[in-house]
Design a protein around this nucleic acid. Structure first.
Lengths: 135, 135
DNA sequence: ATCTTGCATCGACGGACATCAATGCAACCT
DNA sequence: AGGTTGCATTGATGTCCGTCGATGCAAGAT
């Protein structure tokens, strides 16, 4: 139940890899494909709410039975979205008795945050007087 | 040419708004819908590569004529992806003579990075010995 | 004015995705 | 054993999305 999520956490491969971020050097095709899978998983309002409900939960984990009733959607639909979040490496889960508990995988969100953070020293090109402004 | 992108930069409204991030408190429906639009724009390999090419460019801007030949895609397709990135508030553009130049809107990526960053003090629930482990 | 070049828009098509009802399966309870 | 509850999987359906060729439009060149 805890296998098969994308490899996003390794040091030398996967989404984040070595690269200093989206904003510093052009992504190659492979990196872009891997990263896009994770962002696509975040590109749905239901999945964003699920993720935030799971992440913000005191104790660090949530039972599915606490998630489903918060939405106007069928139980299979919620289960489907949870599966996508898990395959993206954003959450993981475990069955305990009758119930299944989900929790955040913080390494993945950390990595995304880093990828979206621009290097400190970069001095924001001045947008008020464009470089090659037409006469 | 520089209007109509999503409002993502204000202090009191839009995507980021006041909220301390995805990971701290549950998102309400409206916040989730707005945020999802931006993440959805990032959920495609072509758009990710476009964004990184634009963001990492020395000088801060890129001519479309430098972007298109980097892909095995038609010119209308690239134009379409650039439009989506612009509507998400991630980039902006300006026509100068014959050419159109694009640049990053760093406020938007900054905000996403913040949203994905967990509060410093939060002590990572111990995953090695699950709370209510079944006997 | 006409031609050419750079980019956006339009309309169409095929594949991907969100959703549901039905079903399957595991674990608990008699 | 049989019944019940919690969740995942399956199959079907309607919609969205990425892609293209054709076209439109703006700006420089002749």
């Amino acid at each position: 139940m805890s296998n098969q999520e994308l490899v996003v956490r390794g040091q030398g491969d996967g989404v984040g890899a070595c690269c200093p971020g989206l904003l510093t050097a052009p992504l190659d095709e492979g990196q872009a494909v891997e990263l896009a899978k994770v962002f696509k998983a975040l590109g749905d309002p239901v999945r964003l709410r699920l993720l935030s409900m799971i992440a913000s939960r005191a104790g660090g984990e949530v039972c599915v039975c606490d998630l489903t009733p918060a939405f106007d959607l069928s139980q299979p639909t919620i289960s489907h979205h949870l599966k996508l979040l898990r395959q993206a490496g954003l959450i993981d889960c475990e069955r305990r008795g009758t119930w299944v508990y989900y929790w955040l995988v913080p390494e993945t969100t950390d990595r995304l945050a880093n990828i979206l953070t621009r290097p400190a020293g970069k001095p924001l090109p001045d947008r008020t007087a464009p470089a090659g402004a037409a006469s």
